[in-house]
Design a protein around this nucleic acid. Structure first.
Lengths: 204, 204
DNA sequence: TGTACATCAGTGAACGCGCGTTCACTGATGTAC
DNA sequence: TGTACATCAGTGAACGCGCGTTCACTGATGTAC
């Protein structure tokens, strides 16, 4: 692989910070939380370690930024998947398809990038998911608003619905990311959970 | 705190291995995965580090044993909680109470020992949950068998039911362990998920 | 029951490693005149 | 437009640390006669 070796000076007043966060993300993708380090990131972007201290107070702060970056990436992935759903004449079907697309994207992300998924959810410091994973939370709630508006989900479920949905899909995604499901069973497992959630939200 | 400082020789042909696993568990409880180490465990049980290599090939192997120990602990906690449920004249109510006790125990464990919970679920190496977390899986399935036997859960749901239940409760537990839910909302969140799961299993 | 001996679970010293972080510095950048 | 200068983002060397693991060893344990 060809690596473009930039001189450190290239970063003068440049994009070192965002380059560092991206490099951190890539290290995590390859080797998990363990692989993230000040020195490793510095090496990766062709800079000496102390240079990073101009932009991050500590390793912990770098980690927080990397984690945040991954959450944004995940949210955008979910949005893009939802936006690819084909419109249907049946508007209820369309809403369900979009809801499923969101959930599937969440699980796919965890499956394809288990290490990113893991790091995305550390260090909440007691922020609720809504604040912490803003984009994904918002996308889910748009779906649920539409369900209620179309009379597909009873109003009295509106408050609990996102909690059940999030827990179920998050649990599924976590188990898949941890390889806690034998490969042959994954498909069935996913269908069981997604169908179950959908039923629970729509019924009665 | 009074620490009983044993001489290393006390362990000759003794219980060093189980003492090490227990010490490992306690280190994890206090400081998470990071806190687990050959040297730290050795110090904790009053032995030099190389002594541990008589019992574990590597740090990784120690971790695997600690993780397994925690899973057993968790399963036993669930069982004991279930067994404390008061018998009711209404046998269906009794079964539901036991099912809730299991789920609540799972979540309580994650809430009270977030670091243990985290370590319990690493390194699956593609074993399915059933094999990996044998005891807990078995307990859940006993409940579901009873539901079906009493006609509370339709037979055709028997296969998917544990998957949905496990995902939902595992997701809830994970979020709580990660402090991803604001403290004030935890109670409502838990009720929403547990009620939702119960409904999903029993309905229709 | 007492002694000689084999076993092997421990010790203590040492290894090389990579880490986060600090410090005084240098030299590129952007600005004021 | 050209020069002098302040700023500050980088460098390079060094720090102390704790880690997993190895090695030759020692001395307690349990066994055979």
């Amino acid at each position: 692989m060809l690596t473009l070796q930039r001189k450190g000076s290239d970063y003068h007043h440049g994009a070192l910070k965002s380059a560092a966060i991206l490099a951190g993300r890539n290290l995590v993708e390859g080797g998990g939380l363990q692989a993230l380090g000040i020195r490793r990131v510095a090496t990766q972007i062709g800079v000496t370690a102390p240079a990073l201290y101009r932009h991050f107070a500590s390793l912990e702060e770098l980690l927080a930024e990397v984690s945040c970056y991954i959450r944004a990436e995940m949210g955008e992935f979910m949005m893009s998947r939802r936006n690819q759903v084909k419109k249907s004449r049946d508007i209820k079907k369309y809403e369900i398809d979009k809801f499923r697309a969101i959930g599937d994207a969440y699980v796919d992300f965890a499956d394809k990038h288990p290490q990113l998924f893991e790091v995305a959810f550390i260090h909440h410091q007691n922020q609720s998911i809504g604040e912490y994973n803003e984009l994904a939370w918002q996308i889910l709630n748009e779906s649920l608003d539409n369900f209620v508006a179309l009379g597909m989900t009873p109003k009295q479920k509106r408050e609990t619905a996102p909690l059940l949905a999030w827990s179920s899909v998050h649990g599924l995604a976590t188990l898949i990311a941890n390889r806690a499901i034998a490969p042959a069973e994954v498909k069935f497992f996913r269908a069981a959970v997604m169908d179950g959630v959908q039923d629970a939200l729509l019924k009665k």
